[in-house]
Amino acid sequence: MTSELLDQALVEEATKKSGLIWVKGTGAPAARALWHVWHEGAVCLVGDGPGEQPLPGLADGGFAEVTVRSKDKGGRLVSWTASVSELPSGSAEWEAAVAELKGKRLNAPDGEAMTARWARECRVLRLTPTGSTTPLPSTNLAEAPQPTPATTRHPIPAALPRLLTGRRKRR
Rank of each mutant, 00 (worst) to 15 (best):
P29C: 09
L55H: 07
E40P: 07
V37M: 10
S70C: 15
C44L: 07
G41D: 11
G25A: 03
P50L: 13
A33Y: 01
K17E: 07
H36P: 01
D48N: 15
G47S: 12
G57S: 11
W38G: 09
F63K: 10
Q53H: 05
G62F: 03
D60Q: 02
F63N: 02
W38C: 13
G19M: 06
L45S: 04
L45Q: 01
V43E: 01
W22I: 15
V66D: 04
L45P: 01
T67K: 11
A64N: 00
R32C: 15
G19N: 12
A31F: 06
G25Q: 05
G47I: 02
G25M: 05
W38F: 10
G27T: 08
G49F: 13
K16I: 09
C44Q: 09
I21N: 03
V43P: 06
L34Y: 08
K17T: 04
L55N: 12
L20R: 10
I21M: 06
K24I: 09
G27W: 04
L55I: 05
Q53S: 13
I21E: 08
K17V: 00
A28T: 08
R32M: 14
F63L: 12
H36I: 01
V37N: 01
H36K: 09
K17S: 07
A64M: 01
G47E: 08
G47A: 06
F63W: 07
S18K: 02
K17D: 04
E65H: 14
T26F: 05
H36L: 02
V66C: 10
C44T: 00
G51E: 05
L58R: 02
G41A: 08
L45K: 03
V68I: 10
S70K: 06
E52L: 15
V23F: 04
V23K: 00
L20K: 06
L58P: 11
L20G: 01
P50V: 04
L55E: 06
V46Y: 09
G41Q: 05
W22N: 14
R32P: 13
G61T: 04
T26L: 13
C44Y: 04
G25N: 04
G62M: 04
Q53W: 02
E65T: 14
T67M: 08
P29V: 13
H36M: 08
R32E: 15
K24T: 12
K24P: 08
A30K: 14
L58G: 10
V23C: 11
P29M: 05
E52W: 13
T67C: 13
G47R: 02
T67E: 14
D48V: 01
E65W: 05
D60M: 00
G41E: 11
V66Y: 00
P56S: 12
A42S: 14
V68T: 12
F63P: 02
D60Y: 01
A28C: 07
H39N: 12
L45I: 03
V66T: 07
W22E: 15
G57T: 01
S18P: 06
P50N: 12
P29L: 09
G19K: 03
G27A: 09
L55G: 05
V37A: 13
